[in-house]
């Protein structure tokens, strides 16, 4: 071979060509697989919402899975609402979800909105709840809400998003039509410690939320307390032993988010 493969010019040229080729291949792959992945994410979202109103995931009858999540979602979700920080309705939608319609409450990516806009505000005002309220009001985003009807009862499913120990955590909390009783909750995480923080994903933890009522009159609206605390109040849930920071993250996101929706519920 005439070219010296160890010369500087060749090394740089090789690196340049390689990066370009690999970049092109990956870009093509991302674009072609995107629609499938988006559809999967939507199914997952519907599954989680169904999970919050009491469906277990599985393939047996009466359980929710990727195959029937769309069908169940259409059957049980009667209305999709998005509200602003002050509880005013931004948009209501019913029927088929138009994918790509950014204003459809279903298409609001709560986790993304949290990551890009809310997270820094929450972090900055950790010890200053008053200023937090002021700055949160200034955040330009919409909060989606799913109104479901199951067994003749109205349930309000609220997406929550927050931060655990290692990364994002999120979930859905379903309230009964008194707007105070939690009828179900579903949480998930990106990379919490298996066996500790990751337990928020398990029904053992999620079942503890069922039947809890939100605090009236005083702060906080909802709270996660240290695992094993005696006399757990109605608005408190036992945290996971060894998963304190993840548990606290769950408490924080539920409390912060439900406060926003409470203003909307007062107008109903």
């Amino acid at each position: 071979m005439a070219i010296d493969k160890n010369s500087n010019v060749f090394t740089f040229a090789f690196a340049g060509i390689m990066v370009t080729v690999v970049g092109a291949i990956l870009a093509f792959l991302f674009i072609s697989l995107k629609p499938l992945q988006v559809a999967n994410d939507e199914d997952k979202k519907k599954m989680d919402i169904m999970g919050a109103i009491g469906f277990e995931s599985g393939t047996e009858a009466g359980q929710v899975n990727r195959g029937n999540s769309g069908e169940l979602f259409d059957k049980y979700v009667v209305e999709r609402v998005s509200i602003d920080y002050n509880g005013n309705v931004v948009k209501t939608a019913t029927g088929t979800i138009v994918s790509g319609d950014k204003t459809d409450p279903f298409n609001i990516d709560v986790q993304k909105e949290y990551r890009s806009k809310i997270k820094k505000v929450v972090k900055k005002n950790k010890r200053d709840p008053e200023n937090l309220a002021v700055e949160m009001a200034a955040v330009e985003t919409a909060y989606p809400l799913y109104v479901c009807e199951k067994d003749g009862q109205k349930l309000y499913v609220i997406p929550v998003s927050g931060t655990g120990l290692w990364g994002p955590i999120w979930g859905y909390v379903a309230l009964k039509d008194d707007f105070r009783t939690i009828s179900g909750a579903k949480f998930d995480h990106e990379g919490e410690t298996p066996g500790l923080g990751a337990e928020i994903k398990e029904s053992v933890f999620q079942d503890k939320f069922v039947g809890k009522t939100l605090n009236t009159g005083s702060e906080p609206l909802f709270e996660i307390v240290k695992g094993g605390t005696p006399n757990v109040k109605d608005y408190q849930v036992d945290g996971i032993t060894g998963g304190t920071i993840t548990s606290k993250g769950v408490g924080e996101m539920v409390d912060r988010t439900l406060k926003i929706y409470e203003r909307y519920f007062k107008t109903l």
Partner: peptide, 12 residues
């Protein structure tokens, strides 16, 4: 293998 420059082989 014959054209990978030795100095950047791990990166490649």
């Amino acid at each position: 293998r014959k054209i990978i420059p030795d100095r950047i082989r791990i990166i490649v």
